[in-house]
Amino acid sequence: MARWQPNASQRLVVAALELFEERGYENTTVIEIAERAGLTKSTFFRHFPDKREVLFGGGTMTGLLVDGITAAPAEAGALEAVAHALDVIGREAFPPERREFAARRQAVIAAHPELREREALKGLGLTASMIEALERRGVPELTARVVAELCGIAWKIAYERWSDPANHDEFGELARRTLAEVQAVAESQSRP
């Protein structure tokens, strides 16, 4: 195989997922992932700091999230700004053809505690990024924190629903609907 091949990062992700499914996360090495992708170990480390990170996209999602919040219309409130970002993420990161991969990825993560821990840390990082992006829009700190936490919950639920192969909704639409459901539950608990 040629020394340089396009889509090295995506090839590494696919190879890692296949190997994690076949052998388990603990029984797969970086060298095996690189070889399966037709690449070298050094190429792997140019794209990912370790094998745990290979299924988590580096900072791609954070960048899309922050850019989406920043690009929301100036008059948008905090919830609408995050909903705008979820629309962007749906178009850019979660096209329908990625649904099967997402379901497989979720199954691998669910089966390995170290990957579940990384998923939780990624969620915390995304929430912190939402808070910072909202505060840069002038949203008060407490409001930004509450909105980011609610949106983080909605995002997680929407992603689980979207990655179900039986679901055919677009991610952005599903995320907005889930966000409305989460908001309705929160509001219902404040009533006597």
Rank of each mutant, 00 (worst) to 15 (best):
V146T: 14
M1Y: 09
I109V: 12
F101M: 08
A102Y: 07
L64W: 08
E160G: 13
G68E: 03
V66A: 05
I109M: 01
A8R: 10
A71I: 08
T43Q: 12
I153F: 10
V146I: 15
K122D: 11
F20S: 04
N7W: 12
L19R: 00
H168S: 14
S9I: 07
L115Y: 01
V108G: 00
A166M: 08
D164T: 12
E187C: 05
Q183E: 15
A83P: 02
V139I: 15
A85W: 01
V82E: 01
T70H: 13
K156A: 14
E141M: 12
T43D: 02
E32P: 02
L134V: 04
E100Y: 09
D67K: 11
A154F: 02
V139Q: 01
A37I: 03
E22S: 14
G123H: 06
H168N: 12
D169G: 08
L174W: 05
A102F: 10
H168W: 10
A102H: 08
D50R: 08
P192R: 12
D164S: 13
K156C: 09
T60Q: 14
G90Q: 04
G24P: 02
K51H: 04
F94S: 03
S42L: 07
E92C: 08
R3W: 13
V82Y: 02
G172W: 00
A166F: 07
W155A: 11
P96V: 06
E132L: 14
R104Y: 06
V146A: 13
A144G: 05
E114I: 08
A71L: 11
W4V: 15
L179P: 01
E53Y: 07
F56E: 00
S9K: 15
I33L: 01
V108Q: 04
Q10E: 15
Q10D: 15
S42G: 07
G138S: 06
H168K: 14
E119I: 05
K156E: 13
R177H: 12
R105E: 08
D87V: 07
V82N: 01
E173G: 11
